[in-house]
């Protein structure tokens, strides 16, 4: 019973991956919108873009990690 509850928890934690996907899409989309408005400044902001994506994605990875921990380690 307890193990099955953990699996349900893992499934719930996987929602976080979708949320992170929204976050990453937000970052990339806004970057693209800004880059199209001012293409000359776009190249200088790619590093910021990747840092932003990495931060947003990291939270999704955390939820994935929680799911894995629930699946295998609890």
């Amino acid at each position: 019973m307890e193990g099955q509850l953990a699996h349900i928890g893992a499934g719930l934690a996987a929602i976080g991956s979708g949320a992170a996907a929204i976050g990453v899409g937000n970052v990339a989309g806004n970057y693209l919108a800004g880059a199209l408005r001012n293409p000359s400044a776009a190249a200088s902001q790619t590093a910021t873009l990747f840092i932003g994506i990495a931060f947003a994605e990291a939270l999704g990875i955390f939820s994935f990690l929680v799911a894995l921990l629930l699946m295998f380690a609890v």
């Binding site: 990495a54 994605e57 990875i61 955390f62 990690l65 894995l68």
Partner: peptide, 16 residues
């Protein structure tokens, strides 16, 4: 914590 989990988590997730 985030620095390390980001790297390992990304790779582990993709491979899994």
């Amino acid at each position: 914590v985030s620095h390390s989990i980001r790297l390992a988590g990304n790779l582990m997730a993709g491979h899994a």
